[in-house]
Design a protein around this nucleic acid. Structure first.
Length: 1049
RNA sequence: GGGCUUGUAGCUCAGUUGGUUAGAGCACUGUGCUGAUAACGCAGGGGUCACAGGUUCGAAUCCUGUCAAGCCCA
């Protein structure tokens, strides 16, 4: 069998491009789905992105994580249909179009025409779809975009209506007059989860004002607010019943004034100023005290302008007296309801003052803040103004400061199912798990009703019609129902505005005109409906829906906790009393190399293509999987991705290239492993199956780190231990069983790694598979992604062997260390290496693997340090873990006692297998061998290195024979360099001409066979090299040499 | 103000139910080795385990508090 030859130098980009072509040509993605038809279903939901912006690195992150589990599950034999989806509605789209048209308010849209505006929205939704498709393709995120669901399609929207009707019927959909976070520019309320997207730290004016009491004109309430623009809407002042308040007297520009405020804030407010406390009293004494309003633009229609008590009042900031404007604060509105206060609506929906507020009519409220402060100051009502830094919500798309603003608004009564939301959440597997009870769980426990309605244009219309005369309301759950009510066939109707607004019918109560309420619904409701609406359920595809619900796996970034994760969960709970996803990976955000958030304004955004073009998709994916736990924020830079190529990809690639190079020379007959006899083979296969077992387990538990990092570790050991130690086995001239075994073992390792790597590094896995598997077996599945996941072959796992090999590596490392200390280069053979280890099992391992150790350390003999003749002394060290756990607080005394004993006696006792009897603190203890570390120290004359319980001691004296062998190896090394310099192929045979000084010549003659076989020399002449040969002259170890080689045909 | 997360070497990260002198990789320095390797081996420098208390024979690990960063809530 012959493999396609592999260049040791890897061109990542062309390799990946070729694989992409192969997949396309053979339609591999489709086949992965079709091949498993009828098999158990594994359900993945794609959280729909919006294609009206360019995809960034954070999208690659999410898509990489989304991709790996479906790939894994397909290899495990599941049927996984991976349907794509696009989120198409909502403000982000509208805002893009508004920008295009140069609009900045709703009126312009209405004048332009909602139909035309929405048509533009629809067009702009897929502005960057090609960019998305190209990126998705390039990073090998396998998702079916041809059949992707689209949230603006009538069928999708009809299903959303059906869900809303279901909620309506359960009395879960209602209209309320509430203070909502409201964007005055977009002219619409925002849901909590949208508000959460836009908090920013800002500096606002903070003002203290005087509100003179009606009964005591020389005394004023000192009232605090950070929103001066709400003062014209003031109807009351809130105080806390149990807080201590004081009346103080102070000097105000020559006249005395009296102010009321919370006692604990006096110092903070007046600092060094001298004030006289006249009176102290509880807040409840203030109840009902009347004051003169600051403004009288709108006359209140109910009693107002008195002090009311509220629990929400704190004395952390301000004055302990809180200004109340019911139209502009949730707590204010609550208080207003409790005390039957009037609601003064002083602001228009566009965020400007109403005409009645004469001085500032038409001024945007935030802009009016300084004007209002000026006015109060002029009238002597301003006590103080300063800057106050706090976090304040902004519109997540247009960046306008949000106002808390009383609106008629529609809600979903999610709070009615709060407990059930929490219960069902507890059955979901969250990665990382703290999200479950932490961020998401806390959020659910504090659930408030879902603010659903949006007063906008491009979105799913709220299917509620209202009688203009009697306010009778009906909710419509399907197109058929609408047709029936309207009395005409509306199956062709576009369910968007403005068309749906034109449908009317007669009120069943009073015969008035039923008209749709103008609102749209929150786009998060669209995407959260996707399990149902993607199938146009229940109108069609009942079966598909049943098969594809709930999802086994979803994955998005942490910002979706309040977004898609919540909308999916809330809708599913209220609709079906069921979870909509069972496992979820919640990804941390990507930051730049300095740990800052990536943002346009900082100019630190890394474009995915910049990374992909240089390092390829596999390296990028691998980096994202292995760099840090999924839920953690991760710092990102192109350089870090480059490290993946160097440290992992190339290591694997070179093992692969090594295998192919030699296999093509040797043509090994069989490549399946049966019963390995060679220790290195047995070890590699044991570790390989441990790897299969552990990686499989990790995939099963959505543990991405442990599904990937161990593969990297294994490849490193494969390269730096197995292949390095096995090289000569591949070079042997014969084609004996050992060589065959080496090929089979390495082949098995590489093909298994290809499969283990397939979900994470789909390209490299395919490359390995195509060349190693497909090229020799045309009956094998045509892609690694169509292959079955490797089974763990327990019979190959030998944990003892793994431990022993670990020990061997450690001892070898100590041996190298000792060599360096003795300044003996590895090329120089040494007589022997003696080791001291700690347990009988380890002593046995030293002799079992003596050959491997001897070869690696280039010594003639490997043995144990002879305790009686070579060991100078022993040390005995009590082990705190074993002894501490066993004897608790007696440990220090025991430790002291053991250290005080004669170490030679301790060693003798424990080596003989007896327990060590220790007296400490008046008690007797039997200490066992594994509770004390006994270490032998080597006599002089050895080069020694030690670590923990282990000692390596090298005999460094050189006999003439050893020295001669060293020379021979030095010589071989020169010849190999020369071969390389002459650009000979590894398999080329040569003839060699040598002129050497006497000592070297006799060494060469003594080791002629070794030299000729190492260097593939057919003829070795002691003669002057001919001119046409490649020649090198050198001096070493006091010897001189001139070597010439040339290829023989 | 509250919640969640994070803080370990210059960088990226491990660190098990508390237990020997806190580790690895990258980077740096020295040295060795090499006909698979963009490598590899060995050694070295580099640490107040964010800080302060507490529990314990023993704390990077458990508890309390503080500080800093990120996200979220109010």
């Amino acid at each position: 069998m012959t493999f396609r030859s592999v260049l040791p130098r890897l061109d990542v980009s062309s390799m990946e491009e070729n694989i992409l072509k192969l997949w396309k040509k053979q339609n591999v993605f489709k086949k992965t789905v079709e091949q498993r038809k009828g098999k158990p279903e594994y359900v993945f939901y794609e959280g729909p992105p919006t294609a009206n912006g360019r995809p960034g690195v954070h999208h690659v992150l999410a898509r990489a994580f989304k991709d790996m589990f479906p790939r894994y599950k397909i290899m495990r034999g599941y049927h996984v249909s991976r349907r794509g989806g696009w989120d198409t509605h909502g403000l982000p789209v509208e805002i893009e179009v508004e920008k295009q048209l140069g609009f900045n308010n709703k009126q312009q849209i209405e004048e332009y025409g909602i139909d035309k505006f929405n048509a533009l929205c629809k067009d702009s939704v897929f502005t960057y779809i090609q960019e998305w498709e190209r990126l998705t393709d390039r990073i090998a995120f396998w998702v079916d975009l041809e059949t992707a669901y689209v949230t603006y399609e009538n069928e999708y929207m009809e299903s959303v209506w059906w869900i809303l009707k279901n909620f309506w019927d359960k009395n879960l959909l209602y209209k309320g007059y509430k203070v909502v976070p409201y964007c005055p520019r977009c002219g619409t309320p925002l849901s909590d989860h949208e508000v959460a997207l836009g908090y920013e730290e800002v500096s606002d004016p903070s003002v203290f004002v005087r509100m003179p009491l009606v009964d005591k004109p020389d005394t004023s309430l000192l009232v605090w607010t950070t929103t001066p623009w709400t003062l014209p809407g003031n109807v009351a002042v809130a105080a806390h019943a149990n807080v201590d308040y004081v009346t103080i007297e102070r000097d105000n520009g020559g006249t005395k004034e009296k102010l009321i405020l919370a006692k604990s804030l006096v110092e903070k407010l007046f600092k060094d100023e001298e004030v006289k406390v006249l009176e102290t009293f509880k807040g409840k004494k203030l109840k009902g005290v009347k004051y003169h309003p600051l403004f009288t633009f709108l006359p209140p229609n109910k009693p107002a302008h008195f002090v009311a008590l509220g629990d929400f009042v704190t004395t952390d900031d301000g004055s302990g007296l809180v200004h109340i404007a019911p139209a502009f604060g949730q707590e204010d509105m609550q208080l207003a309801k409790e005390h039957d206060l009037p609601v003064l609506m002083t602001v228009l929906p566009d965020g400007t003052f109403i005409p009645e507020v004469t001085p500032w009519r038409g001024v945007f409220v935030k802009d009016a803040d300084p004007l209002i402060i000026q006015d109060l100051d002029a009238r002597g009502l301003l006590f103080r103004t300063e800057k106050y830094t706090h976090t304040y919500p902004f519109c997540w798309r247009c960046h306008t400061p949000l106002l808390y603003y009383a609106r008629d608004s529609w809600f979903i009564r999610t709070s009615a199912h709060r407990d059930r939301l929490v219960e069902l959440n507890n059955t979901i597997n969250w990665v990382p798990d703290h999200i479950k009870s932490g961020r998401f769980g806390n959020w659910l426990e504090n659930n408030i009703d879902w603010s659903l309605s949006r007063e906008r244009y491009w979105g799913t219309p709220l299917p509620v019609w209202e009688c203009v005369d009697c306010t009778h309301r009906e909710c419509v759950g399907s197109v058929a129902e609408l047709s029936e009510k309207a009395g005409r066939d509306l199956s062709e109707l576009d369910l968007h505005r403005p068309y749906v607004d034109e449908v009317h019918w007669k009120c069943a109560n009073c015969g008035g005109k039923m008209t749709r309420v103008p609102d749209l619904i929150d786009v998060w409701f669209d995407s959260g409906s996707m399990p149902i609406a993607q199938w146009h359920y229940p109108f069609e595809n009942q079966e598909q829906f049943a098969r594809q619900y709930p999802a086994d796996y979803i994955c998005e970034a942490v910002d979706q906790t309040r977004g898609w994760f919540y909308s999916l969960h809330a809708i599913s709970t209220l609709l079906n009393d069921e979870v909509s996803f069972k496992n979820v990976i919640c990804l941390g955000h990507i930051q730049d190399a300095e740990g800052r958030k990536m943002s346009k304004s900082l100019g630190n955004i890394v474009q995915p293509w910049d990374v992909l073009n240089v390092h390829g998709a596999d390296a990028l994916r691998w980096y994202l999987y292995t760099a840090s736990p999924p839920g953690q924020e991760r710092r990102f830079s192109a350089d870090l991705v480059g490290d993946v190529i160097r440290s992992f990809t190339l290591t694997l690639w070179n093992v692969y290239s090594f295998f192919v190079t030699y296999a093509n020379l040797d043509n090994p007959q069989a490549l399946t492993v049966t019963a390995p006899t060679n220790d290195l083979d047995r070890w590699l296969l044991s570790e390989l199956n441990v790897l299969v077992r552990d990686v499989t387990q990790a995939y099963e538990t959505y543990d991405v780190l442990n599904a990937t990092r161990p593969v990297e570790k294994f490849v490193e050991q494969l390269s730096t231990w197995y292949v390095r130690r096995s090289r000569r086995r591949f070079w042997k001239n014969d084609s004996g069983a050992d060589k065959q075994a080496a090929y089979s073992t390495l082949y098995t390792a590489l093909t298994t790694i290809a499969k283990l790597l397939a979900p994470a590094m789909p390209f490299l896995a395919e490359e390995l598979y195509q060349n190693l598997v497909r090229s020799v077996d045309q009956t094998a599945p045509e892609s690694v992604h169509l292959a079955d996941w490797p089974e763990t072959m327990e019979e190959f796992i030998d944990e003892t062997l793994n431990r022993e090999m670990q020990l061997v590596m450690r001892l070898v490392s100590l041996g190298h260390s000792a060599r360096q200390k003795a300044n003996r280069k590895v090329r120089q053979p040494l007589a022997s290496a003696a080791f001291s280890v700690s347990t009988p099992a380890e002593r046995k391992a030293v002799s079992t693997y003596a050959e491997v150790i001897a070869d690696e350390l280039n010594v003639k003999q490997v043995r144990l340090l002879d305790a009686s003749t070579e060991a100078l002394a022993h040390t005995a060290k009590p082990l705190p873990k074993q002894l501490g756990q066993k004897y608790g607080n007696k440990y220090p005394a025991i430790q002291k006692a053991i250290l005080a004993m004669n170490a030679e006696e301790v060693a003798k006792t424990l080596h003989s297998g007896r327990a060590l009897v220790v007296e400490a603190g008046g008690e007797t203890y039997n200490i066992l061998a594994d509770e004390v570390e006994v270490k032998a120290m080597a006599k002089e004359g050895f080069a020694v290195a030690e670590e923990g319980a282990y000692v390596a001691a090298l005999v460094t004296d050189l006999t003439p024979e050893l020295a001669q062998e060293g020379l021979a190896r030095e010589f071989v090394r020169r010849v190999q360099d020369l071969r390389k310099a002459a650009e000979l192929d590894v398999a080329d045979r040569i003839e060699m001409f040598v002129e050497a000084s006497a000592g070297l010549r006799s060494a060469i003659e003594a080791h002629k066979d070794y030299i000729t076989s190492e260097t593939l020399t057919s003829n070795l002449y002691f003669a002057t090299p001919p001119e046409k040969s490649s020649i090198v002259e050198d001096e070493f170890e006091g010897e001189k040499v001139k070597i010439g080689v040339r290829k023989v045909s």
